[in-house]
Amino acid sequence: MKCYLGIDVGSISAKGVVIDDDRQVISDCYLRTLGNPIAATKDVLRNLRENLPPRFSVRGSATTGSARRLAGIMINADIVKNEIIAHAVAACHRYKGVQTIIEIGGQDSKLIIIRDSIPVDFAMNTVCAAGTGSFLDHQAIRLGLPIEEFGKLALKADNPVHIASRCTVFAESDMIHKTQLGIERNDIVAGLCEAIVRNYLNVLAKGKEMKSLILFQGGVAANTGVKVAFEKALGMRIEVPEYFLVMGAIGAALLARFQMQGPSKFIGFDRSVDQEFQSRGFECPDCPNQCEIVEAVRDGEVVARYGSRCGKWE
């Protein structure tokens, strides 16, 4: 059976899918990166392999996400693509007529504008993590709630409270202040969801035309509270795709499916999982730029180096 592998390693979570020749997902996996992209990539591959049929051959592989380069070197991927295009490809392929993609992940949020199945414009949040999944995560811990229940609680709220949305630090002190006033927890949770939406619309959607069909993907899409808050703010229906968690990985796999010519360079599931893979860094002493060079080592052999400005280590 021919299949294609897509891996999306982000800052908070690592995702992977395997699709068949008909572009159907046959195996998918979502887990936390926990600050170790190498281990997470291996775990993803291990999980993916368990759901695969006994006989298969990988015809193409692609990586995406903020650790796409590292993961790409690890498995010797055929394609390394940025996550913006990967998300757009997956959405366009699975939903005809999509014009807007809202993607909120652990550490960043994106808005992709699509016209006639081609991404024409995008925006990505700046260095700050306000208005992303990790902000909600953090507040959930503070309120002593499992993040999975956030959405349900938000839906039960009668009067969502207004929480400052500009900055995570302001939002947090605002939230603490409102809890101390004795406001109900449901209302606080719903307020947080609305704050995220306000932040998103202010930071990313300024001057962009959000037309229907709007897809909402990424980890935060699991939170129905945020979805409802988006619908309220935009006055439009929002669709959460079936595989919202792994859309980036699906996009990568689709790119591999469409663009592969010739045999895949992928080193195979067994080799990828069993390899001794390390990345180590050093500062190049040759000029005052002191670039941080990253060296990727597989089974004791240097397979790639990158990070220099002048390009002499590559």
Binding site: N82, E83, I84, I85, I118, P119, V120, F122, M124, V127
Partner: peptide, 22 residues
Amino acid sequence: EHTGVAGVYTRIEAFLDVLSQR
């Protein structure tokens, strides 16, 4: 003052993809 160029390159790469498809 950020040394992590990855974020900037992600945006640039995506921008180039948008341009070439356009």
